[in-house]
Simulated assay, not measured.
Amino acid sequence: MGGEAAQLTPARIDFSGVDPAAPGTGRWAEVRAEVMGALTTHGWFDAHYPQLTPELRAGLFDAAVRPLFALPVDAKRRNYHGPEKPFHGYLGGLPGLDSYESLAIVDGLKPESVRAFADLVLPRGANDDDGFCEIVNGAAKRIADLEGMVRRMILEGLGVAEHHEAQGESFWHLFRMSEYRAPNSDEKVTGYIAHQGGNCICTIAKE
């Protein structure tokens, strides 16, 4: 049991002093070694990224995510991209997941995409203030920076760093916000059931 428990405990990696715009500088090599070690051992890790500040996380959860999921279902269902792209928009009322909901913003790194999403789902007049868009777009950009650093470190660790730029050009981003009922509780929190993702996923939590 002790060995199994240790395997389930992820490494916590501190990305302080690592600049996404200056790979190879500062603590880059040290953190890269920790990333490769954690992925080899666990397949994932807990990242401390100072750019995702407590203030930004609090703003994202309290000023953006919670009010968003408090909207009527009809408003959330307007986030729809057709039956061929069910995971690009609103998910709710799924069989066996009655308490689960999620909303996605395609190309959340682009301010105009976040603005279009806000215009679509928020009540008229509620999105006059740019606060919602600034918070969501700011969080999406910082998450993408972290993902980009980790991806580059992995390619460097595998000895194929020269493919980083080409690989990055093939990517697109989906910023998904989720909410579900915690076990044995009526309180809703962000998250999802245990599952395997087929792409790079970065989950942030309010600490």
Results as ranks from 00 to 15, higher is better:
residue 46 D to H: 14
residue 139 A to R: 01
residue 58 A to Y: 09
residue 150 V to S: 04
residue 90 Y to N: 02
residue 78 R to P: 09
residue 54 P to D: 07
residue 139 A to K: 02
residue 134 E to C: 09
residue 32 R to Y: 00
residue 135 I to M: 08
residue 93 G to H: 07
residue 61 F to Y: 13
residue 72 P to W: 04
residue 102 S to L: 09
residue 60 L to E: 02
residue 84 E to R: 06
residue 137 N to P: 06
residue 48 H to W: 11
residue 75 A to M: 10
residue 36 M to L: 15
residue 150 V to D: 00
residue 101 E to Q: 13
residue 80 Y to P: 03
residue 108 G to T: 03
residue 79 N to F: 13
residue 125 G to M: 12
residue 95 P to R: 07
residue 46 D to Y: 13
residue 122 L to G: 13
residue 124 R to M: 07
residue 150 V to E: 00
residue 78 R to G: 10
residue 34 E to N: 02
residue 75 A to H: 12
residue 115 R to F: 12
residue 51 Q to V: 05
residue 33 A to T: 15
residue 89 G to S: 07
residue 40 T to P: 00
residue 44 W to P: 07
residue 88 H to Q: 07
residue 60 L to R: 08
residue 54 P to W: 05
residue 103 L to Q: 10
residue 47 A to Y: 03
residue 135 I to F: 11
residue 43 G to T: 07
residue 72 P to L: 06
residue 128 D to S: 11
residue 54 P to I: 04
residue 153 M to I: 10
residue 144 A to G: 03
residue 110 K to L: 13
residue 106 V to N: 04
residue 127 N to F: 14
residue 94 L to M: 11
residue 104 A to M: 05
residue 55 E to F: 11
residue 34 E to S: 09
residue 122 L to K: 13
residue 79 N to P: 04
residue 46 D to I: 00
residue 137 N to K: 04
residue 106 V to T: 09
residue 61 F to M: 15
residue 47 A to I: 05
residue 34 E to P: 03
residue 69 F to D: 00
residue 94 L to T: 08
residue 134 E to S: 12
residue 35 V to C: 05
residue 88 H to I: 00
residue 144 A to P: 01
residue 45 F to K: 13
residue 122 L to C: 14
residue 136 V to S: 03
residue 51 Q to S: 12
residue 59 G to C: 11
residue 153 M to E: 01
residue 103 L to H: 03
residue 59 G to S: 11
residue 141 K to Y: 03
residue 81 H to F: 14
residue 110 K to F: 07
residue 54 P to Y: 07
residue 138 G to W: 05
residue 52 L to C: 10
residue 155 L to V: 11
residue 83 P to R: 08
residue 103 L to W: 02
residue 122 L to D: 13
residue 128 D to R: 14
residue 147 E to P: 01
residue 111 P to T: 05
residue 39 L to E: 03
residue 128 D to C: 11
residue 59 G to H: 05
residue 71 L to C: 06
residue 66 R to T: 03
residue 52 L to A: 06
residue 136 V to W: 06
residue 127 N to D: 13
residue 103 L to I: 00
residue 154 I to S: 02
residue 145 D to I: 01
residue 101 E to P: 09
residue 151 R to Q: 10
residue 33 A to I: 08
residue 118 A to M: 11
residue 156 E to H: 11
residue 68 L to K: 08
residue 79 N to R: 02
residue 75 A to W: 07
